[in-house]
Design a protein around this nucleic acid. Structure first.
Lengths: 210, 210
DNA sequence: CCCGTTATGTGGTAACTTTCACAAAAGTAG
DNA sequence: CTACTTTTGTGAAAGTTACCACATAACGGG
């Protein structure tokens, strides 16, 4: 079975496995079975083996998976064995929090440029350069940036996405509370905190909370 | 067909429909067909009708759906025809951004209390009270809060979740980059920005970006 | 009042995802 | 080298979710 159409849930689980493997490595564990990995991250062992089977054979029968090897293999198939430069658009409350968030770097993402209509009085961490929004196309194109995070007001999200697409961006993570329709040849992931809370509200109501 | 086991994707789409209906209302449109609604929010019309059919019959054959009515109906089944008090745990970069984020209020969620180990020098918006983390159980219990947002360091997320559960919280939205295992009788939704970026990286790599 | 038009609600099916269950492979001990 | 244990990789079954297609109902015009 080799890479054709991989379901997004599978890709999400790969990321989860990576997290879990990290912990195992820190604990000094060198080999892990799908049963143990599954127990740790709450996934059916067969599911894990099927997910991995999309990309090749990484285990050893009768033994399991070598933690470090598997980590490398997953990173390779996910394209995480490199650093991704990421542009942030919208340096408001959320944007600033994202800039300061250390988690991205740990995963190989570097927020190296940020854009906002208003640049005055705004501070960005070291290693990141803040530009006025009008410079977006030029800077993104010059730096060859392929990935962007959108954290602008929802009324501007679609337009920003299209400008980014024209500048060569191929993947957008959108935090604006409004679904961006993916421009041609661009992958968009919408993270909608409002929707998440609403889903919670639904299940709480179902279960008769308060 | 009446409420039994509703798939989460369906609930997520209900939230999406709500957004879309809001726009329609603002445009002064009073009636909408599943075809038009589907076109606008990128969902198959039959899918929309099936989703709604879980909860009853809201449309009129030959006509479509009355925008305002449908909004009310969806809000009712989702438990959004009320205000939810929400506790925020962890007032760091992300926590602060979430406190200032206006979107929650618009959707009927009120971040009325916040907790952090260190309260000194931290500011919270009006209408929200900041407490030391040690007060968490007491305050949550007293106020009868059922919903919480966790934005603490990943090493503390699981423990915080369990404390919240003991204090009576039934739903948790977790932003820490680590899956919280749901305590008994608690619904947990994990929002993992690292994973989202990794999924993007995967699809960009697949498509041969850079 | 009847007929044509429109759009819902839903049975059936197709597509997809998860889980089961087992043969095949690798290691180990005698 | 053989017998036994372990755990993978995977075909097939079970379970879910999405979509098609049409009978059914409501509306409107003549």
């Amino acid at each position: 079975m080799r890479r054709f159409k991989i379901p997004e849930v599978t890709v999400g689980r790969l990321s989860l496995y990576l997290r879990c493997l990290n912990e195992l490595e820190e604990e000094g564990i060198e080999v892990v079975s799908s049963a143990e990995l599954g127990r740790r991250c709450g996934v059916n062992p067969a599911q894990i083996r099927k997910d991995l089977a999309y990309f090749g054979e990484f285990g050893t029968r009768g033994v399991g998976y070598y933690v470090k090897e598997l980590m490398q293999d997953i990173k390779r198939v996910m394209g995480l064995n490199r650093t991704w430069e990421v542009a942030l658009v919208g340096v408001g409350n959320l944007g600033t929090a994202l800039l300061r968030y250390k988690g991205f770097q740990r995963h190989g993402f570097k927020l190296s440029v940020a854009f906002d209509i208003h640049t005055e009085g705004k501070e960005v961490p070291e290693g990141c350069v803040l530009y006025p929004a009008s410079e977006m196309e030029r800077v993104v194109k010059e730096k060859g940036i392929k990935m962007a995070i959108v954290a602008v007001h929802y009324s501007q999200a679609q337009e920003v996405a299209e400008r980014l697409a024209r500048a060569g961006v191929k993947g957008i993570l959108n935090f604006a509370p409004m679904r961006i329709r993916p421009p041609k040849k661009v992958v968009v992931k919408n993270v909608d905190m409002g929707t998440e809370l609403e889903i919670l509200a639904f299940y709480l109501t179902m279960r008769g909370a308060k």
